[in-house]
Amino acid sequence: MRRRARPPIVAVCIGGVAATFFLLPLVGLARRAPWSSLLSDLTDPAARTALRLSLICSLWATVVAVGAGLPLAWVLARVEFPGRRLVRALVLVPLVLPPVVGGVALLLAFGRRGLLGQYLDRWFGITLPFTTAGAVVAEAFVAMPFLVVTAEAAFRGTDRRYEDAARTLGAKRWTVFRRVTLPSTWPALAAGAVLAWARALGEFGATITFAGNTPGRTTTIPLQVYLLLESGRLDGAIALSLVLLGVSVAVLALLRERWVGAL
């Protein structure tokens, strides 16, 4: 009758505790949520500004991540060059670096006195800190690895013979990429872009460190949540947190085929 062995009880118990560990914070958030004033908390001018700014910044960060990350992923997957492993490791740095440290590093590179930033300032009059562009840079820095890693894996996973066949039939490289590589990898690329966008939307540490906190310019939702908490306005903070939570759940639902369904 029984097809499977009885599950090991200790593992199940500890696993259950671990799962509860993930669940309880969400329940806590939902329980304290100011459901009756949710709408007014979210349409509060400061909240609306933060929501709009977050949307703009995260979308631009995704554009930057895709625009710069796709070519990088393709090169990493297809071109043999010395130091390729090093570059691959470099791409992973923002994934493991604490975002605040990333923010300091960005300041030292692109700040007004930074390695490259001083020339941006001197020659072009461009300063990134305290601007929306700075917030986009900070978000792109932490979000791009998600796109590159996903895209590189997808490019590596495709059957090179289709591309080779297209080449022997006279197709140019760009045509091969557009007509053969892209169609076979786009679900993965889209997933990578969505992941990068979600990471950009939730970015806090690098943004507040590198881009500072200016309402309407760099105060994205996570920064606004933190400031609301500091000024004791828990309701507003939870309302905005719920938006981010909702987005996370939506992203999970969208990508369920890739993760949850793949089990």
């Binding site: 800190p129 500072g212 906190n213 200016t214 933190y226 500091e230």
Partner: peptide, 10 residues
């Protein structure tokens, strides 16, 4: 102000 920092040390 260009930025409203989260604490004085920032």
């Amino acid at each position: 102000p260009a930025s409203l920092e989260e604490n004085v040390k920032a």
